[in-house]
Design a protein around this nucleic acid. Structure first.
Ligand SMILES: [Mn+2]
Ligand SMILES: [Mn+2]
Ligand SMILES: [Mn+2]
Ligand SMILES: [Mn+2]
Lengths: 152, 152
DNA sequence: TTCGATTTGTAGCCTCGGCTACAATTAGGC
DNA sequence: GCCTAATTGTAGCCGAGGCTACAAATCGAA
């Protein structure tokens, strides 16, 4: 992950050229996309461990609909970023950081599906669309969803 | 149960293994992501032509927050896919297919922002998040949004 | 225990979308 | 009209995330 200047706490000057705003939005979307894969893997690994007792690369690959080679390479990225570990022929595990990411991803995923259904989106469409939408929902937006659903 | 008469590409037998559903959702999200860049460019080019009279690569790059080399390369992809044309030093234009894509992208973008605001998301957060969310909103979900907003 | 099937890992290829550096073209001020 | 600045385009690099093909390790049934 490219260092991502995390100046989220810094107030953003209101006197920037107008197109800078737009550029900043696109940049946020690109950043979100860069973490989407990590979030999906973390959530899935956590699910598999919970339901199957273990998360094997082959199962991960089948659930994601990618080749096992692709899954293994992505798992390598998770390890590189300190989110997962794995022992040869013994499955993949999440580090504390990975667990935390998985928990938040799962909670957000559920909230997004519930919000969509609450505003009238059919269940199956909500499930499908949420898989992509979830990665672009900020904490602020998530709080608004929770409030709307009466779970503030 | 998993119905939704799909396109000719993927035949969906009703008795698929349960994890195939999940794989299919992930695949949809990946497909949506593959077209996200095209949609953003088409929408932006259309906007620039509308407000500035022309869409020059440099302006496109600045609005997107990427280098002009990146923008030019992406514009090449739009041309390759029949969505845009350009004359040397004379800006970028949209083909009819590109215009159509831009129109739909803009309408969807607006509906997504409006939906977010309607459920209580602050305006600025809605604008930011919509830039990513929009690409994962299916037609079915979009219709539900329109209905919710009373624009059925 | 042995041996074939499954699982896991590696190697190499591809496209995409970032970037910088540099080259060429055009536009504009003087 | 000339020269500089801006714009546009090209070349080459990179990492991410797809893929297939092949190799190695493990598992499990006979
Ligand atoms: Mn997802
Ligand atoms: Mn998810
Ligand atoms: Mn967008
Ligand atoms: Mn948009």
């Amino acid at each position: 992950m490219p260092k991502s200047k995390s100046y989220k706490l810094v107030a953003e000057p209101a006197d920037l050229p107008p197109e800078a705003d737009q550029a900043h939005r696109f940049e946020k979307a690109r950043t979100a996309q860069a973490t989407a894969l990590l979030e999906d893997y973390a959530e899935l690994i956590s699910d598999l461990i919970g339901t199957e007792g273990e998360a094997r690369p082959t199962d991960i690959a089948r659930r994601l609909g990618v080749s096992h080679a692709t899954a293994i390479k992505s798992i390598a990225r998770l390890k590189r970023e300190g989110l997962a570990t794995s022992k040869l022929y013994r499955g993949v595990f999440l580090t504390p950081a990975g667990e935390m990411l998985a928990r938040r991803a799962r909670a957000r995923h559920r909230l997004v599906v519930d919000l969509l259904v609450a505003v009238g989106v059919p269940q199956e469409a909500a499930e499908v669309d949420a898989e992509g939408i979830e990665h672009h929902v900020s904490d602020e937006t998530l709080r608004a969803f929770a409030t709307y659903l009466g779970r503030a």
